[in-house]
Design a protein around this nucleic acid. Structure first.
Length: 260
DNA sequence: ATGTCTACTCCTAGTAGA
């Protein structure tokens, strides 16, 4: 069995104790973090090292930033999303390999800031991700693409009035790009096990979103075909959102059975 | 849309991003 968790922590330094508590309690093999909001040298490695976890970090000052905490050895395959230009300095992707599985950890652009250019960047990023998934499929790789997608794929994935009309998370072009990614052959782990439940992974800090359950389902673990066959559990760690000083996202875990 | 949160700076108040 391998347990993989993804969590947008909205600053790893602010959320250090939450993350440490989660590792101690849940013992994932990999914890994929997004929005660490710091550079690599500022990453609080020691707090996690004490719990048996090492980190690979792609950081950036103030914004974005992804990291993989691992208690099993990993090889870093890509520190950025293949297909995006070198001039793109956003720290939004890291891909590692362990136990015969390639794991992409991603923080997809929100797309609501920066006007038309900001939204075009989101769509370009999504197309690069689709092309990357296609190339992994062509190579017959077992892989997971997990993280904060900043996409509500269907109307079942957000609460009524949780988003304004025309938000970048639910525009038709956004959904089309997400579908194109899925159609490379991926399985949304959450929907595979819970096809029709109302499930969210994010509640805004504003407008009493948590108290009103005005949430969004925007964090996903997408599985390649053989890994989808091995899926045994999906856990949305909703209790994290009720804690003091929480992230606005909660962790999402999958368990995959040992390869046959 | 913005009732909140985070990090940064021409740093203790205002801005940007989410």
């Amino acid at each position: 069995m391998i347990k993989i968790t993804t969590w947008n922590v909205n600053s790893v330094r602010t959320r250090e104790s939450h993350v440490a508590d989660f590792l101690a309690r849940e013992q994932p093999d990999l914890l994929l973090l997004q929005e660490i909001k710091c550079e690599e040298h500022q990453f609080p490695r020691m707090a996690f090292k004490n719990l048996g976890y090492d980190a690979v970090v792609v950081g950036q000052k103030s914004y974005n930033g992804v990291a993989v905490l691992h208690r099993v050895p990993v090889e870093v395959l890509h520190p950025r999303l293949p297909g995006m230009p070198e001039s793109d300095t956003h720290a939004r992707f890291i891909e590692v390999r362990t136990q015969g599985i390639t794991v992409g950890n991603l923080y997809l652009p929100n797309g609501n800031s920066g006007g038309d250019e900001g939204y075009a960047y989101k769509l370009a990023w999504m197309e690069a991700l689709r092309a990357h998934s296609e190339s992994l499929m062509d190579a017959d790789t077992d892989f997971v693409l997990a993280g904060d997608y900043n996409v509500c794929p269907t109307d079942a994935d957000f609460a009524p009035r949780a988003l304004p009309a025309g938000d970048a998370l639910l525009r038709p072009e956004t959904r089309a790009a997400f579908n194109a990614l899925i159609w490379t052959g991926l399985t949304d782990a959450t929907r595979a096990l819970y096809p029709s439940e109302t499930l969210y992974t994010f509640w805004d800090y504003q407008a009493s979103a948590w108290d009103r359950n005005a949430g969004l389902r925007i964090d996903f673990q997408l599985l390649s075909p053989r890994l989808a066959e091995r899926l045994t559990d999906v856990i949305i760690h909703k209790d994290e959102r009720a804690k003091p000083q929480p992230s606005d996202h909660v962790p999402l875990s999958v368990k995959l059975a040992k390869a046959a």
